[in-house]
């Protein structure tokens, strides 16, 4: 049972404190477990702050996303392979990502949010960021993929030629 009026104080990795309602934190498996482990009374506010290994700037984005999704159903629905697709990101989420996912940022914010969603165990946010990254890669050339994912090619020319030869078996 969740008590939406309860407040939880989160301390970030860079020492900031943010207080949010349980209505938001219920979407985070990590925070919920931390609160459960505190064994607080039903009506008590867990004053002991939950330390989250996420920086302040990233946590603010996470809280913004949680605020929009506070009424989403829990548990987060698991989708089958057939149901899973990358082009069904809600309009609000798309606009949310576009606000900060800029080329100048070299996608560091996206990476930080993905990492935060994983650490805080927020399945909906992790799923949305996964789809966002999939959409970025979709239909791109090898060079473009390396640029987007910031990967260094560690193949020899011979190895690349061999993989290209294998790939040549397939055609559109």
């Amino acid at each position: 049972r969740i008590y939406p009026l309860m407040r939880v104080t989160l301390t970030t990795s860079d020492g900031a404190s943010v207080t949010v309602s349980r209505q938001l934190t219920k979407h985070s498996g990590f925070i919920e477990k931390a609160i459960t482990d505190m064994a607080v009374d039903d009506n008590a506010v867990p004053l002991s702050a939950v330390a989250v290994d996420v920086d302040d700037a990233t946590l603010k984005l996470v809280i913004e996303w949680l605020t929009e999704h506070r009424d989403d159903a829990l548990p987060y629905p698991e989708k089958t392979d057939e149901e899973r697709r990358a082009d069904d990101i809600p309009a609000w989420d798309q606009a949310f990502v576009q606000k900060w996912d800029t080329k100048e940022d070299q996608q560091q914010t996206l990476y930080a949010v993905i990492t935060a969603a994983d650490k805080l165990d927020i399945k909906g946010l992790l799923d949305m960021t996964c789809k966002t990254l999939a959409n970025k890669i979709n239909g791109k050339t090898v060079e473009e993929m390396r640029e987007i994912l910031q990967l260094e090619c560690d193949f020899t020319e011979e190895e690349l030629a061999e993989i290209r030869k294998e790939n040549a078996w397939c055609e559109n």
């Binding site: 996206l110 990476y111 930080a112 990492t115 910031q150």
Partner: peptide, 9 residues
């Protein structure tokens, strides 16, 4: 731009 210490990996 985000001031996070994270680097994309």
């Amino acid at each position: 731009s985000h001031s996070s210490p994270y680097t994309m990996d």
